[in-house]
Simulated assay, not measured.
Amino acid sequence: MATERDISLNDYLRARKIDPALATLVEHIAKSAIVMADHLKAAAFHDQIGNAGTRNVQDEEQKLLDVLADRVFRETCAEAASLAAYVSEEVDDVAWLKAPLAGDLILYVDPLIYLSNEQIRASPPRGQSADGRAWSGRYGQVGYRAGTSAPARR
């Protein structure tokens, strides 16, 4: 018998009779979050940490991950047929995706909320570094015990 933990997001939203247009948009938001989680895990390995050299609508320095997250959310959520416009704190203008119809939705989003890039760490799988030392850990918060190849939690 399926439990609440076994149910898909799609089935969960449908079972609660959530408006189909909204349910579809929520599924696209979830898909965007999954894509960004993968990017965050590998950000340090793909040189995606640091400043982008641009500013957002609140005149804050944009990070490379801010710009990437905005693109991922905008492109993924634009696939939802009911989304008429996308508004992000990362860009000045509303992205009108189509002429709005009755029942269409507008998504207002801050696609990536975090305190600083210094708090975003790579989340590598367990493995071995180029110099042969073992590494593992969550968010890259792993060091090495002096004189050993065993990781030490920080």
Rank of each mutant, 00 (worst) to 15 (best):
Gln141Pro: 03
Glu61Val: 14
Glu61Arg: 09
Ser88Gln: 00
Gly147Phe: 06
Pro124Asp: 11
Ser116Arg: 02
Arg16Glu: 04
Ile106Gln: 03
Ala2Lys: 14
Val35Lys: 07
Asp19Ala: 12
Tyr139Ala: 14
Tyr144Cys: 13
Ala146Glu: 10
Leu107Tyr: 01
Ala80Cys: 08
Arg145Cys: 01
Asp104Pro: 03
Ser123Ala: 13
Glu4Ala: 13
Ala42Asn: 14
Ile29Val: 15
Ala85His: 00
His28Pro: 03
Glu4Gly: 08
Asp110Asn: 07
Ile113His: 10
Ala122Pro: 13
Asp6Leu: 09
Asp38Tyr: 03
Ile113Asn: 14
Ala23Arg: 11
Asp47Lys: 11
Trp135Arg: 08
Ala84Ser: 07
Ser116Val: 08
Gln48Gly: 01
Ala44Arg: 13
Ser8His: 05
Trp96Asn: 05
Val72Thr: 06
Ser88Gly: 05
Asn51His: 12
Glu90Val: 00
Ala122Met: 14
Arg74Asn: 06
Ala99Tyr: 02
Asp70Val: 00
Val87Tyr: 02
Ala30Asp: 10
Asp66Ile: 01
Arg145Phe: 12
Asp104Ile: 05
Ala146Met: 05
Tyr144Val: 15
Tyr114Glu: 02
Ala150Lys: 10
Ala30Gln: 12
Trp96Phe: 05
Glu61Pro: 11
Ala33Thr: 08
Ala42Trp: 04
Glu89Tyr: 09
Ala102Lys: 06
Ala130Val: 12
Ser8Phe: 04
Leu97Ala: 06
Phe45Ser: 13
Ser136Tyr: 05
Arg126Glu: 15
Phe45Tyr: 12
